[in-house]
Amino acid sequence: MATKTGIQLAIITSLNPKKSLICLDSSSSSSRRLLLSSSQNRRSISISRSALLDEQQQEISFTEPENKLIDALIGIQGRGRSASPQQLNDVESAVKILEGLEGIPDPTSSSLIEGSWQLMFTTRPGTASPIQRTFVGVDFFSVFQEIYLQTNDPRVSNIVKFSDVIGELKVEAAASIKDGKRILFQFDRAAFSFKFLPFKVPYPVPFRLLGDEAKGWLDITYLSQSGDLRISRGNKGTTFVLQKKIEPRQKLLSAISIGTGVIQAIENFISLNQNVAKDELELQEGEWQMIWSSQMETDSWIENAANGLMGKQIVKKNGQMKFLVDILFGFRFSITGTFLKSGANTYNVTMNDAAIIAGPFGYPVELETKISLQLLYTDGKIRITRGYNNIVFVHIRT
């Protein structure tokens, strides 16, 4: 939904795990350490909690075409704002495939359209309003759309949730159904609800004076049979992807983007997947961007870079690996080496050819680092490992 006064709505991602077993060391949450779970070292999980997690996983079900769209969203920041041309193409291709399939017929009349939807992705045409540009592309904020059509006062509301502590901004529109796919709306009120104030603060936009500028429509081009995935297109040409239920992988990525609850998200994700067959994991080739680690501080940035605590890891089939870190003003740090499998899910990594690079020139740096790398989880899109100094890393394949 995109108008000059509205907030774009629709949002984020899921995992298709080739599972491995890890659990959190619950004895010290502040240390943020992860332990590899084995028959000798496994933190027990209560039956009731395990059953609840299993039930939650069973409730979240997507078809193969739906999973392709969810996979395409992984690694896209700002709900599409920072997407590369290739990422945008992958998402659009997956969207068109779903729009060509049979979802819920006449979605505007279905009870599955009702409720709160979280925005995972949106295209951002130049007609997007200032409030859309300000809030929708910020990962720290959660963005939702509420749809309630089967009431005496049908409404569509766009909500930006700043945090549980701060509060939210809610922009509401009176709504009506035009046909089986299209919802008509007209924005008529908006307000900030701050947790620290006993009253709402009006959002200063004179909707009544805007006339047609406060009006718009929203087409539901795909609604999944489960009612958990929706694709919509707005009157300004904007595409939205929204979800009701978010898979553990998506929750993990969202927690990392926000910067809170990462440990809990990893724990929940692993707990949901720990009963799956213990396949031997392989270090997959490709370019992997580090997005989170359980510890970021060492004595110097060059040690961080050399030990894989920064930047990208490039893995090649021939047993070669490179750590690449952008520094400043076009300078990059590069260190290459080799990896050799030493166990079912472990590798010995030796990095010993380092240089600071500027354009075609390189300045050699004498460094050598040896790391024991454990693959804790990988599915080709996300990788969780334990490496230098027992630090846990989350990488996304770019």
Rank of each mutant, 00 (worst) to 15 (best):
V365Q: 11
R43M: 09
I47R: 13
Q295I: 00
R79M: 03
N235K: 12
E172L: 03
S129N: 12
R249Y: 14
T123G: 09
F333K: 05
T221S: 12
E59Q: 15
Y377R: 01
N352W: 06
G308W: 03
L218F: 12
F207Y: 07
S14V: 01
T122R: 01
G330L: 11
R155S: 05
L218R: 03
F194S: 02
N390P: 10
K195F: 06
G78R: 04
S14F: 02
T369A: 08
Y347W: 09
L209Y: 04
T127Q: 05
K322F: 11
K316T: 10
A358T: 08
S50I: 05
S110T: 01
F185P: 05
H395D: 10
G115I: 06
D90C: 01
V325K: 08
K215Y: 08
T123S: 14
G337S: 05
F141P: 00
M351R: 02
N348A: 10
V143I: 14
G100H: 12
W288L: 00
Q374D: 15
Q225R: 08
A174K: 11
P364C: 06
A255M: 09
L309A: 11
F331S: 05
T122C: 09
D228P: 06
Q320E: 15
I45P: 07
T122E: 04
E59I: 13
Q225E: 13
I327D: 02
L112W: 08
T122N: 10
V156S: 02
N268L: 04
V160W: 00
S254P: 08
T134Q: 15
S257K: 14
L53C: 04
E297G: 11
P130V: 01
G100D: 12
Q313T: 09
E99R: 00
K170F: 07
F361M: 11
L169M: 02
R133V: 07
G362Q: 08
E102W: 13
D179M: 01
Y222A: 01
I177K: 04
D179F: 01
Q8L: 12
S20M: 08
S44Q: 15
K370I: 04
I371W: 05
V143D: 07
S293Y: 03
R397F: 01
G227C: 07
F121D: 00
E168G: 04
S271F: 10
I258N: 06
I263P: 00
M290E: 13
T398S: 11
P125E: 02
V95H: 04
S226I: 07
S20D: 09
V136C: 01
S300R: 08
G343T: 00
G362P: 07
Q132S: 15
G75H: 02
I131C: 06
M310W: 13
F240Y: 12
I11P: 03
E66Q: 12
T238S: 13
I11W: 03
A358Q: 14
L112P: 10
I12P: 10
R233D: 11
A173M: 03
A265R: 01
G337C: 05
S372N: 12
S129Y: 12
L197S: 07
M296C: 12
I246G: 00
G100T: 09
N268D: 11
R208G: 08
A277I: 14
